[in-house]
Design a protein around this nucleic acid. Structure first.
Lengths: 160, 160
DNA sequence: CTACGAGTTCAAGCCGACTTGAGGTCAAGC
DNA sequence: GCTTGACCTCAAGTCGGCTTGAACTCGTAG
């Protein structure tokens, strides 16, 4: 297939030309020449953009993505790193799942104060927001107890 | 329990005082008075902050979160809206799951060009990246854990 | 050959969620 | 009563990922 100019790439991928230029500037993609001023791309750019989109959809930063892709367009990086990324996502997914359950539950749980509901509290905890552990509360106003005042600053990783 | 000043809230939740002030400014939380200049909060603030953290962990914008919480701290919003949010998360989760699979697969699939591998392509497609549409996930990235903690280098992705 | 339109460059702007810095104020300790 | 130091306010800065605007340059139609 013939080279594609930036407009065609944009049209076929939905990625705005400004974004393509930006990606090029960042080194995520490379044009293979110009026609006049106009950038030309190898059709393989489409795959590469798909990879980038994949990474973006996965919540990865552009820098991370470029670290995952070889300049040649192949997504090879060492297996350990890919697995690490997959595990990150795994944690995220678990958290989101808990939150989803919390929302679904909140939608129909009749408890006046959701924090009184064990299901909800569990979701909060799983969500990683559980550092504000709220004690099972009695008849009165919620009494909050036992929160470790510890501030986390290191890159600790998701709950369990 | 007695009112807590901002420092105590911060200590017990890990949320920086600057963030608490910011949240107050945005109307997400409210202080109930001052001691000198120092803000005082009702202990229920802890629950409210937990809710906010939950929302943030779910990828919701602060504005959305404040729309979900009544001024009184209860998370009530209509069931439809909560369900809608849950469904949003569901989609996100599905996408992320596909991406995770793609990563895991890429880690060990020997195909020179991953796009030639049906498994990978399927993941790309499911991820929504096949149409090159980069669907944003929440404002945290995969590795962000410290929802309420110190600022990580979270590459926020704009909300939809 | 010239005008035009669509691309190009570079710098600046935007958005969300905060953080940081300068300068102000106040309760508490001596 | 005065100092101190912790919080206060307000404005500005940061970061990622782009977008936008002004000024410019070509290839192409006429």
């Amino acid at each position: 297939m013939k080279d594609m100019d930036i407009v065609e790439v944009s049209r076929r991928t939905g990625v705005p030309a400004s974004t393509l230029r930006y990606y090029e500037e960042k080194g995520l993609i490379a044009s293979i020449g110009r026609r006049g001023l106009r950038r030309l791309f190898d059709p393989a750019i489409l795959e590469r953009l798909a990879m980038i989109a994949l990474g973006r959809a996965g919540g990865f930063a552009l820098d991370e993505i470029s670290a995952m892709l070889t300049p040649d367009g192949l997504p090879k990086m060492d297996q350990r790193r890919l697995d690490a990324k997959a595990n990150e996502l795994d944690n995220t997914i678990r958290r989101l799942t808990a939150i989803r359950e919390a929302l679904r539950h909140a939608a129909r749980c009749p408890a006046a104060r959701p924090m009184e509901c064990p299901t909800f509290r569990r979701a909060v905890r799983l969500a990683g927001a559980g550092r504000f552990e709220v004690a099972p509360i009695g008849p009165f106003k919620a009494e909050v107890v036992s929160v470790t005042g510890r501030k986390r600053k290191s890159g600790d990783v998701s709950p369990e």
